[in-house]
């Protein structure tokens, strides 16, 4: 994880409820390498594909359910 940008992004995601241990449901996927729409704590967040991929790497260590792709 990058120290500079990564830190801010991580905190941002946490504010939206995307934190270790959270229950996440994948709702939809955009075309052409588009974003992933996830539902967490009853609210929906679109995450860019690159970002979603990076978070999953982060998140797998921290007991996220594997089905959120």
């Amino acid at each position: 994880m990058a120290i500079n940008g990564g830190h801010g992004v991580l905190l941002r995601l946490r504010r939206l409820g995307l934190r270790p241990g959270a229950q996440v449901r994948a709702v939809a996927t955009g075309r052409w390498g588009g974003p992933v729409l996830v539902e967490v704590d009853g609210c929906r967040v679109a995450l860019g594909r690159g970002l979603a991929r990076r978070i999953l790497v982060q998140v797998n260590e921290d007991s996220f359910r594997p089905d959120e792709r």
Binding site: G30, G33, G34, L37, A46, G48
Partner: peptide, 19 residues
């Protein structure tokens, strides 16, 4: 509006921006 942002995110990446 945010839905359009979601739908077009992939295309926007082609021009180096995002949704």
């Amino acid at each position: 509006m945010p839905r359009v942002g979601f739908l077009l995110d992939g295309l926007m990446h082609r021009i180096g921006l995002h949704g």
